[in-house]
Design a protein around this nucleic acid. Structure first.
Length: 419
RNA sequence: GGAGGGGUAGUCAAGAGGUCCAAGACAACGGUUUGCUAAACCGUCGAGGGGUGCAUAGCUCCUCCGCGGGUUCGAAUCCCGCCCCCUCCGCCA
């Protein structure tokens, strides 16, 4: 959520920057609603001041045993008028809130304008695997080695609910365990959150109301299946005023993630590439506005360190404005190369949401004792998303004899060197 | 799911139609005193929003006592609905 006062003061400046993500952005209705709301607010407040005054006098007169019937009549009319105005004020506030909730964050100055093709590859790290003819894609490898069973996953839940079996199941769990411990060692506070979230929580995350189609909803209980731990962890300190000395707060959580992925199927995204359920170790930080871009660099470095520990080839991509999630001001993706698909796929998305989510969830901090509270900046980074990582490992680490050579760090966790 | 108890500011807590513009304590902050630390004493001390200001300064107004409605000239206080926490019972891995 953007700050209505910034919008009020510099509507054209904000609109220009928003148009780099969506050329359709038009703030006129929003600004009209804001005017209307402010006018109503002033009127209501003036009447309430009069009513408070009058009501107090009623009390005083009654105490003195005087008649107050003229005042009572006036106050009665006043209250009726206030009631009507308040109703209109409520409606205007609600409509303004709906408009505000739809607007995306303003991109950071370093974010290039444009869509997917305007993303900038900042760096490429590690050795790119070869394109030897014996290489297979992870679907083939998974079934050859008895690691994945998509047919039976579908039997249980439907298409695109992957199932890991045997050493495949152990590999998935080992990756989660390794990444979780890795980040705890690097100073993140471990969290094991609920895997479902309330409507309010997803609103703060900015998943709702605009992206309701992407999440699984359990209507009967008014709960949603977790789409990403970002949505959960941003609610960890909802409504709080944090102590400035405690910042930054850094958390690491493991969760399964559920996404409907409505209308996003493609033949090239079969197997583990795009699924309804995957596992993710998520990093999340609350910090000050001054620190947040340094903090983003650290999150990226921490996410990267997992890929380095696994010995993976990857690239670092700065997303362009139209490719940003609604809440993000700046996002850097880490993409691993999948030889079987011949292209790179995102395994981590590292974003600074600045005060966008903090404003939605009223998450603030006090810079120094006695100072006014200010909104924190929230950041998130996958550290990393598996399913895709498993696909990448299988395709990158396959050997000519068909076996998969495990990275050193995973071997103690599976008890074998090769799958 | 059932019964009972509870939710008031950073924490604890009083308050039961007008004196609440929310007591008091603790914590915190500033100061006085003081070999040092501590104690004592004095003072400051919730949040959001509107108006007026160059102002994140003053002044002023409105709102907030778990959330949402209602009654009333007037609600922390009365009524209705909901949420959360605690204790017990039931069901359950």
């Amino acid at each position: 959520m953007l700050d209505i006062r910034t919008l009020r003061e510099d509507p054209e400046g904000v609109a220009d920057r928003l148009r780099t993500r969506d050329p359709e952005v038009d703030l006129t209705t929003l600004l009209e609603l804001d005017d209307e709301r402010l006018a109503l607010l002033r009127e209501v407040e003036a009447l309430k001041a009069r009513r408070n005054e009058g009501s107090q006098e009623v009390g005083e007169r009654k105490k003195r045993g005087e008649d107050a019937s003229d005042l009572l009549a006036e106050m009665g009319d006043l209250s009726t008028a206030i009631g009507d105005l308040e109703k209109r004020l409520r409606e205007a506030t609600e409509r303004l809130g709906e408009w505000l909730a739809e607007l995306p964050n303003v991109p950071h100055a370093s974010v290039p304008s444009g869509g997917k093709d305007e993303g900038v590859v900042l760096r490429t790290e590690g050795d790119r695997p070869g394109d030897e003819p014996w290489r297979k894609n992870h679907l083939q490898i998974g079934s050859d080695r008895g690691l994945l069973d998509f047919a039976r996953g579908a039997q249980i839940a439907g298409a695109r609910f992957p199932m890991y079996v045997g050493l495949g199941a152990r590999l998935e769990m080992a990756l989660i365990q390794f990444m979780f411990a890795h980040h705890v060692e690097r100073g993140y506070t471990p969290v094991w959150p609920p895997f479902v979230a309330s409507r309010e929580s997803l609103f703060v995350a900015s998943q709702l109301p605009k992206f309701a189609d992407d999440v699984y909803q359990m209507e009967r209980d008014e709960l949603y299946l977790n789409p990403t731990a970002e949505s959960l962890l941003v609610n960890l300190h909802r409504g709080e005023i944090l102590d400035g000395d405690d910042l930054p707060l850094r958390y690491v959580a493991y969760t399964p993630c559920f996404r409907r992925e409505a209308g996003s199927y493609g033949e090239e995204e079969r197997g583990l590439i795009r699924v309804h359920q995957f596992n993710k170790v998520e990093l999340f930080a609350y910090t000050t506005p001054d620190d947040s871009y340094d903090c983003l660099e650290r999150l990226i470095a921490d996410a990267e360190s997992v890929l380095q520990a696994l010995g993976m080839h990857y690239r670092v991509v700065l997303l362009a404005s139209a490719d940003l999630a609604q809440q993000a001001a700046k996002t850097i993706d880490l993409e691993v190369f999948l030889p079987g698909q011949g292209r790179y796929y995102e395994v981590s998305s590292c974003s600074n949401c600045e005060a966008f989510q903090a404003r939605r969830g009223s998450i603030r901090y006090r810079p120094r004792p006695k100072e006014k509270p200010a909104f924190v900046h929230t950041l998130n980074a996958s550290g990393l998303a598996t399913s895709r990582l498993v696909a990448a490992l299988l395709e990158n680490n396959q050997q000519e004899d068909g076996s998969i050579l495990l990275p050193e760090v995973l071997r103690p966790l599976l008890g074998v060197d090769v799958l």
